[in-house]
Computed example of a mutant assay.
Amino acid sequence: MSLMIEYLMPQEERDKISQTFYKIDLNNDGKISKAELYQQYLARSGDQNQAKQEVDKIFSQLDINENQFLDFNEFLIASCNKKALFKEENLRNFFNKLDRNHSKQISANELKIFFYNTNLSSSDWQQVIHLGEKKQELNNKISYQEFVSLLTENE
């Protein structure tokens, strides 16, 4: 999802989200703590209980890596206009960018090209591929429909 945002989100939208992120990141460490977000909600609502509940709810939904901070990618994913991002044309273009050999399916090797900065092992890559596979179609590749399903299943 973050790679898709990088390729498809207009720079203006990314800049606005970045400005908001750094207004909340009071100590400028590149991540938002519960305390920083709590301060923002408390200033707006004036209600300590409501602010705490809202911050807990946000962290339970957005803290993907469960490190008790919201990093910029987590914030960006939560803040982007998913309806615009998930337009058929965008999904198709991004899928085609990943499908380098034009086989109409994405292999683990094709994903590795785009995610070269990660420390995933070969077995980890196979697990990523299996996320998108239908039970009747275990071919170590992700089809376009599986790709769309993976990206939109929680939306």
Rank of each mutant, 00 (worst) to 15 (best):
L111E: 10
K57H: 11
K82G: 00
L85G: 02
F95T: 03
V55Y: 00
N93A: 15
Q39G: 06
N27H: 07
K112G: 04
K83Q: 15
H130C: 05
W125F: 14
I129F: 04
D56P: 00
L76H: 04
L26C: 07
F86S: 02
S33Y: 01
E74Y: 02
I58L: 10
N49E: 14
N81R: 11
L85P: 01
K82V: 01
W125I: 04
F95I: 09
W125K: 02
F114V: 06
E110P: 02
N28F: 07
N73L: 04
N96Y: 06
Q61S: 14
R92V: 06
T118A: 06
I113A: 09
A51F: 01
G132D: 04
A51P: 02
F115L: 15
D25H: 04
S123M: 11
S33V: 03
R92T: 09
S121Q: 12
N119A: 14
N119D: 15
H130Y: 08
I113W: 11
F114I: 09
N81E: 13
F69G: 01
S122M: 10
L76Y: 03
K112W: 04
D71Y: 02
N73P: 01
A78W: 05
F95C: 07
F95Y: 08
E133M: 09
L111G: 06
K52Y: 00
L26D: 03
A108P: 02
F72I: 08
I77M: 07
K87F: 05
K112F: 06
L111R: 03
E66I: 05
S45F: 11
N109P: 00
A35R: 09
D29R: 07
R44M: 14
